[in-house]
Nucleic acid binder design. Structure first.
Length: 575
RNA sequence: GGGCGCGUGGCCUAGCCAGGAUAUGGCACCAGCCUUCUAAGUUGGUAGUCGCGGGUUCGAAUCCCGCCGCGUCCGCCA
């Protein structure tokens, strides 16, 4: 499928190319979006070179002299060093309407591609419920999954399950040795919350009691040696935690396609194969029976640049198994994306270097996010200084519920109010996290997380509900739609923005910027509300104009719904 | 000590990768707009040395160098 603005851009670029050729100008063509009122596309002429010395303004004038009008270009202007292009409004209106009404729930989505993508995200230690500190991970990850799907890729999400480490060993020891009476009751009757107490108590005991510390160490060692009984025992300890995590994720519209246990790569011996190859590289070093790679030649700096991949007792380390996992992933997909906390930056770099030494071509693209911290500092499951994701979800629901009750309490049923509150609350949560660039620090403040006004999901959902409300009140068939009749400035701006949707998806995907989607949807919702203010739809007497406006409302509804879908946020028909 | 990331009105944030036209929007605050399609909306206003100092350039929030602040990492942990 070819979307309207792609046609327009192609036309400008190809005409510009031939103009430059004729004039003997050289240089790269950059299409920009100019400030409001100066046209739809702009080309700066600073960088064009010519034999005779001329100012950018003179060059721009030379170019537009030989530029012909066309289907897409209605007007060309020179302002300073810029050529400003004004699109033919009729062409834009007609083709945008045609495109949206043809593609419907697929509008904006890009052509199917052959490549398969694996997105690894969340991968939390299954020792307790997800907390807000790492809550960005599933939300960023799942949004990336949805963006890549919208961009036409086949996508699989994976949760790398750390079933061998010390964290799960501590948990397993607790489950095996502690009496359930010792475990404090939690306010959530959920398997992950019911289990985390074992972890918290045994990690306290671990510090105080050397014998316990030894026993936990033994669990780790046996796991790493691939002892099936131990691995199964650990599995039954963390299984309820994982079940609880899954439940929470499901509530915020996230499902993981596959859980990949770390122990797989010990069982199948692939981590040992990684060790054998790494040992043969010239960067390999040996220290008291343990093996490492010297990372200095690869630009890694710090107190200690040795990257150990084999202990003196012959067992592998977390990073070694991670390398084996990536080796496996590289053979199962064309594009790999990892969503990781910023604490994994060094490890991720070490894995990347090792993969290159193993001649792996398919190196993952990694999105690092900064931790969400509390006003007093960072969160910690061990010290029980946490806000759990479940608490945040419930708070979002409660606030949303109060809002719905305040506004609609007299009109709609309790059940309906709860449905709406769930949709609005979850939306607010996901939107608030995804609208900020992953690498920015977030200090978690309840009043900000739960602000439902302005640039927040309820605003967008509300606009969608408004559109649905208008459409549901219309009894007549929407036919003979003539978009050319829509010449109010609010209508024209809205149509232009609707036309941009595919470009936004492409950009969000190519540059891995999930936060582009929320800002685009905010733009659409704002413009729709301005249209709503300026252009009455149902009361409009002229039936042709009324039909065209109804079609515009429907087109907006489609874009809002499709866009919210990419964010994993439901689009309610009423609020 | 070193590496990496971040620093934009009182608070939050876009733009930075690919330098370019009056720096984007939101929250809060002030003043308006509901007998008309849901006011979770909308109009206007107050508010900015783009952390600081240099440099490159016709032009720097954007690129380069130095410094400051915050986060994070530098385990035979995960």
């Amino acid at each position: 499928m070819t979307y309207p603005l792609y046609e327009a851009k192609n036309e400008i670029v190809s005409k510009l190319k031939s103009a430059l050729l004729k004039l003997n100008y050289t240089g790269e063509i950059k299409l920009e979006i100019p400030p409001t009122g100066l046209g739809d596309f702009a080309v700066p002429c600073f960088s064009f070179r010519s034999k005779i010395k001329k100012s950018p303004n003179e060059k721009a004038n030379d170019i537009i002299k030989i530029f012909e009008k066309s289907v897409w270009i209605e007007k060309i202007e020179v302002k300073g060093a810029y050529i400003n292009y004004f699109l033919n409004k009729e062409t834009l209106k007609i083709s945008t309407f045609k495109s949206i009404s043809k593609e419907k729930e697929k509008y904006g989505y890009l052509d199917r591609k052959k490549e398969k993508v694996i997105v690894e995200h969340t991968s939390a230690n299954p020792n307790g419920p997800l907390h807000v500190g790492r809550a960005r991970n599933p939300i960023i990850g799942d949004t990336i999954v949805r963006i890549y799907k919208a961009a036409g890729y086949k996508v699989e999400s994976q949760f790398y399950l750390d079933d061998m480490g010390k964290q799960v060993a501590i948990l397993a020891w607790g489950v095996n040795n502690l009496d359930s009476k010792q475990i404090p009751k939690t306010k959530y009757d959920k398997p992950d919350h019911n289990t985390v107490g074992y972890y918290q108590i045994s990690s306290k005991l671990l510090k105080e009691n050397e014998e316990i510390s030894k026993q936990i160490g033994l669990i780790v060692k046996k796991s790493e040696e691939g002892d099936k009984k131990t691995i199964d025992n650990v599995h039954s300890a963390y299984a309820p935690v994982l079940e609880g995590i899954n439940e929470s994720l499901k509530r915020i519209n996230i499902t993981i396609d596959n859980y990949i246990p770390e122990s797989n790569f010990v069982k199948d011996n692939s981590s040992n194969k990684v060790v054998e190859i790494l040992k043969t590289t010239k960067y390999c070093g040996f220290e008291e029976g343990a093996y490492y790679l010297d990372m200095k030649p690869f630009g890694i700096k710090g107190r200690n640049t040795n990257f150990f991949f084999l202990r003196k007792d012959g067992t592998t380390l977390y990073a070694t198994r991670d390398i084996a996992y990536h080796l496996w992933k590289a053979n199962h997909a064309d594009i790999l994306i990892n969503v990781l906390g910023e604490d994994h930056k060094l490890e991720s770099k070490q894995v990347e270097i090792a993969l290159k030494l193993l001649k792996v071509k398919n190196i993952p693209k990694v999105i690092f996010y900064s931790f969400v911290s509390l006003p007093g500092g960072k969160m910690s499951t061990r010290r029980a200084r946490v806000v759990y994701l479940d608490e945040l979800i419930d708070e979002c629901f409660n606030i949303a519920y109060n809002e719905v009750k305040k506004r609609r309490g007299k009109e709609i049923s309790e059940k309906k109010m709860k449905e709406i509150a769930e949709i609005v609350g979850i939306g607010a949560l996901r939107y608030n996290i995804i609208k900020v660039q992953p690498e920015k620090d977030i200090i978690f403040k309840w009043e900000e997380a739960l602000n439902f006004e302005g640039n927040a999901s309820p605003f967008i959902q509300y606009s969608h509900a408004r559109a649905c409300s208008i459409l549901s009140k219309n009894q007549d068939e929407i036919k003979d739609v003539d978009p050319i009749l829509l010449n109010n400035i609010s209508e024209e701006n809205l149509i232009k923005s609707l036309a941009k949707f595919p470009l936004v998806i492409e950009e969000a995907c190519d540059s891995c910027r999930p936060h582009n989607i929320p800002s685009y949807l905010f733009e659409i919702a704002s413009q729709f509300n301005k249209f709503y203010r300026d252009c009455p739809v149902l009361p409009e007497k002229n039936k042709y104009l009324r039909n065209a406006r109804l079609a515009l409302v429907n087109a907006t509804r489609i874009v809002l719904k499709n866009g919210l879908e990419i964010l994993g946020i439901a689009a309610p028909e009423e609020m």
